[in-house]
Amino acid sequence: MNTPPLIMVLAAGLNSCIGNILLKWSRTSLPTDAGPTDKFLSIGFIGGLLFYGINVVFFAKALDSMEVSVAYPILAGSGFAMLAITSYYIFGEPFHLSKWIGLGLVLAGVILLARGD
């Protein structure tokens, strides 16, 4: 079965989001006096690296049949949207009107790019 490249890019964005969440968690879940080695060898940090690696694989596969000038903005925009929403729920990060407006603009840009006209 041949997966459409847009699905591959969105999967890469999801993996990027998960990787970022795990990195943030790795920096906040350990005591403040934990050394750099402890933070870089934590399960969150290693997990974040793993999801970033999966992100690269999905994105590279999408580039087999998609223009990078279209694929990368979709990757970045979808990753940003997923991350903004997820970090609000997981870490309680603020989600003000300006973020909603920004997400709307990003979504509009992603839709325009994905149309491929």
Rank of each mutant, 00 (worst) to 15 (best):
L83I: 11
Y89S: 00
F58Y: 13
V68Y: 02
F58C: 14
H96W: 12
F58N: 12
S65N: 07
D38K: 15
N20D: 05
D38Y: 07
R27T: 07
E93L: 05
P36M: 03
S65Q: 10
G35T: 06
M82K: 01
G19C: 08
M66Q: 01
L103H: 09
L49N: 15
A81Q: 01
P94L: 03
S16P: 03
G53E: 00
A12W: 01
I43M: 14
S26G: 10
T86D: 03
T28P: 00
D117K: 12
L97I: 06
G13A: 15
G19V: 06
R27K: 12
T3C: 12
L30M: 13
P5I: 03
A114R: 10
T86G: 02
G109A: 08
L49P: 04
K99C: 00
L50W: 15
I85G: 05
A76D: 01
S29T: 10
I54S: 00
P4N: 10
L23K: 02
I21Q: 07
L23V: 02
L105P: 09
G77M: 00
K61H: 04
R27G: 04
L14V: 15
Y52S: 14
L30C: 14
L49F: 14
M82V: 03
S42L: 06
V56Q: 10
A62W: 08
E67P: 05
L103A: 07
L63T: 14
Y52H: 13
Y88V: 08
P5L: 11
A62E: 15
F95D: 03
F40Q: 14
F95Q: 05
T28D: 02
Y52M: 10
C17P: 00
L63R: 13
I43R: 13
T3R: 08
A81T: 02
F59K: 01
G102T: 14
D38P: 07
I54D: 01
E67R: 13
F80S: 02
